[in-house]
């Protein structure tokens, strides 16, 4: 998993994205805020959602979950 390393820690990319999602945002906004290419953001959002660290709403806004916040603060 590219967002979490083998020790269970967030990668720098995942950390940047989760930090940007403390307020709900779409992939384009996250890409602009983090200065990451949009395709990397989309791939990471999918992975972080699968890991339960963020949720997506029907209108494709993403938001960090309680589990995501705990991971960020760990």
């Amino acid at each position: 998993m590219a967002c979490i390393d083998p020790d269970g820690n967030l990668t720098r990319t995942a950390e940047l994205i989760l930090l940007a999602l403390r307020t709900p945002a779409g992939a384009e906004v996250v890409a602009a805020e983090t200065d990451l290419p949009l395709f990397r953001v989309r791939a990471a959002l999918r992975e972080l959602e699968r890991g339960g660290l963020l949720t997506a709403s029907g209108d494709q806004l993403f938001q960090i979950t309680a589990r995501g916040i705990r991971k960020l603060e760990a």
């Binding site: 998993m1 590219a2 967002c3 949009l38 395709f39 990397r40 989309r42 791939a43 990471a44 999918r46 992975e47």
Partner: peptide
């Protein structure tokens, strides 16, 4: 090499 990726991640580019 950048993790799991879909071609659809590139839409718009």
């Amino acid at each position: 090499t950048f993790g799991n990726i879909q071609l659809a991640d590139f839409r718009g580019s």
